[in-house]
């Protein structure tokens, strides 16, 4: 069952990615196909996660690949909140190929099979893994928004007529969405980190490199919010800072396999 759900979810995401590419070249029905591909894929992946959870009798996210599967689902979930609107189809072009690719990586890493009961407690998994994954998913979206901001900004600066036409979100909208996404994700990251530190203290362990990277991530995004709302940072500077934060997220996600799941 899990194999079928994975297969169809992957096909839906891949179809959405291709349709987004077609829509970017020529807006039209391909955009609607992409939107429905994302929705259908998300439903199938949701069913996949439920099926895995039922088989594992808990949350099967205690493996690197399993948590990657959850991460992909969260990225698509956050994207679904507003990403299916016509003007954000370019964002879909950035998000869906990555989602489809990461889903395959999760499958190759054994994150689809699941079935084994987690060594962590359910409460800890929900609070720590769930919140950190949600925050990382939101930061991924914020990075895609910042990338789109920089691309749109460059188009406007280029003044080439063909580049100035077409559907893209406005600079201010992208900036606002980026900062709001980060503002929602940072408290989740904070709570997830606190849960991890409490467990660490109970076990008498010390802070490792991955935790340091995660704390670095928190510091970058915390700075982003302070600079954005207190010092009035706007434009390219803010977008670059959000991308720096995402670099920490990438390092943290890659480091997970080495430090937590090896």
């Amino acid at each position: 069952m899990a194999e079928y759900l994975f297969g169809f979810a992957f096909l839906a995401y891949a179809a959405a990615a291709i349709a987004y590419a077609a829509d970017a070249r020529r807006p039209g029905p391909a955009g609607r196909i992409a939107t429905w591909g994302v929705r259908l894929g998300w439903l199938l992946q949701t069913a996949l996660l439920v099926e895995e959870a039922a088989r594992a009798n808990g949350f099967p996210w205690s493996t690197w690949a399993g948590s990657l599967n959850l991460f992909v689902w969260l990225v698509v979930s956050v994207y679904l909140v507003w990403g299916c609107r016509t003007r954000y189809r370019l964002l879909g072009l950035a998000v869906m190929p990555v989602a489809a690719g990461l889903l395959v990586v999760a499958r190759l890493g054994g994150g689809i099979g699941g079935g084994s009961t987690s060594s962590y407690s359910t409460t800890f998994l929900v609070v720590h893994v769930g919140l950190l994954s949600f925050a990382f998913a939101a930061f991924t979206l914020a990075a895609a928004l910042s990338g789109l901001y920089l691309w749109q900004e460059r188009r406007l600066k280029s003044r080439r007529p063909a580049a100035l036409l077409g559907r893209a979100p406005s600079l201010l909208t992208l900036e606002t969405l980026t900062s709001r996404t980060i503002a929602v994700a940072l408290p989740a990251l904070t709570a997830g980190i606190v849960a991890g530190l409490v467990r660490l203290r109970d076990q008498g362990a010390s802070v490792d490199a991955l935790m340091a990277v995660t704390l670095g991530t928190w510091a970058v995004y915390g700075s982003y919010l302070v600079l954005r709302y207190e010092a009035g940072w706007h434009g390219r500077r803010a977008a670059y800072l959000a991308l720096v934060g995402f670099a920490f997220v990438v390092v943290a996600r890659l480091g997970l396999q080495v430090s937590h799941f090896s």
Partner: peptide
Amino acid sequence: ALAQQVFG
């Protein structure tokens, strides 16, 4: 239209 690309 260009102003809308900047400000929405």
